[in-house]
């Protein structure tokens, strides 16, 4: 087990550096003139241009710039964004918001996706099963910005149940509406996945054996079936959490949440290489960790799986 962990972690380090190099190269190739991108439609004087070019090493070749970046990263200095703010401070502000939002969303997915899926599987072909199938189909087919804008307008502006936008003073409550929007898509997938997985397992031989042994139905479903059915669902939710941590760019944009997605979007718009590379590198780290956790969870859920 520890050998497995070590191997995975070493792989992680390699993946991390490879990925930063790739992203750095990509940003380097699209960033034609970050100084003008920052200036927008306003003119930039020649004197200002030469000063900023020197300060941000924009005239240096690719590998030198990458070297500067890695040196900063290793010494714990995440560098400065092209508008002069320290990237570390930006991340410290943005990340807690994105984490709250994505954990809330995943919580909703787990709560309603799994329970709904199990219920639909147990009552296969009945009203709940049919309507939930139809509804999830609609949700999966609707782009998230449509759901987001409609929810914001209806539940925020018209009904007044929620604030239409992020309000720091409300604490976690401010994330509820965006989390629901964010969760809906995964909820639909999670529900269908759970339903099919449970339905399939209900027909398995071991369930028949358990029934003939005289075990109670709640115990059969709750312990035996559920545990076996959750493997694909856990994989799905694990990957989903990784994706959500990257900041839901669209949802954060609609509800004005100054999270990681916003940071990234702004960075790409401003051709802000250091910022984009830093944010994406950290996202890669998160993906690596969540993937590892999901793989370790497999062993807990299914004793047949052993990591050696």
């Amino acid at each position: 087990m520890s050998a497995y962990l070590l191997r995975r972690l070493l792989q992680g380090v390699l993946t991390f550096f490879g990925a930063t190099l790739l992203i750095f190269a990509m940003m380097f190739s699209i960033a034609k003139d970050p100084l003008q991108a920052l200036a927008g439609e306003k003119p930039l004087t020649e004197s200002q241009r030469v000063q900023l070019t020197a300060q941000y090493h924009l005239d240096k070749p690719f590998l030198t710039q990458y070297g500067y970046y890695i040196r900063g990263l290793v010494t714990g200095d995440l560098g400065k964004s092209i508008n002069g703010r320290p990237i570390g401070a930006m991340l410290r502000e943005a990340w807690p918001r994105t984490i709250q939002l994505s954990l809330l969303a995943v919580g909703i997915v787990i709560l309603f996706g799994i329970s709904g899926g199990v219920y639909a599987a147990l009552r296969r072909g009945r009203v709940f099963d049919q309507t939930s199938l139809a509804l999830t189909l609609v949700v999966i087919g609707t782009p998230v910005f449509v759901i987001g804008s409609v929810f914001q307008s209806v539940f925020g502006a018209q009904l007044g149940w929620f604030r239409p936008s992020y309000a720091a003073e409300l604490g976690l409550a401010t994330f509820i509406l965006p989390a629901i929007v964010l969760a809906l898509l995964s909820l639909a997938t999670g529900l269908r996945l759970t339903r099919n997985s449970v339905a399939e397992n209900l027909r398995a031989d071991y369930v028949r054996t358990a029934m003939s042994k005289g075990l109670s139905r709640p115990r059969i479903v709750g312990v035996h079936v559920l545990r076996n059915s959750l493997i694909p669902v856990v994989t799905f939710i694990g990957a989903d959490l990784g994706a959500l941590m990257g900041g839901a760019i669209v949802t954060e944009g609609i509800f004005n949440i100054p999270g990681v997605g916003h940071l990234l979007f702004q960075g790409i718009q401003l051709e802000d290489g250091p910022r984009v590379v830093t944010v994406v590198s950290l996202l890669i780290l998160i993906y690596l960790v969540t993937n590892l956790v999901v793989d370790l969870l497999y062993a807990l859920l299914d004793p047949r799986i052993r990591h050696g």
Binding site: S149, Q152, S153, G156, A157, Q158, G160, R163, P164, S165, G253, I254, F255, N256
Partner: peptide, 9 residues
């Protein structure tokens, strides 16, 4: 657009 929704709300 978010500003506008907040104005309406």
């Amino acid at each position: 657009p978010t500003q506008y929704q907040d104005l309406l709300a």
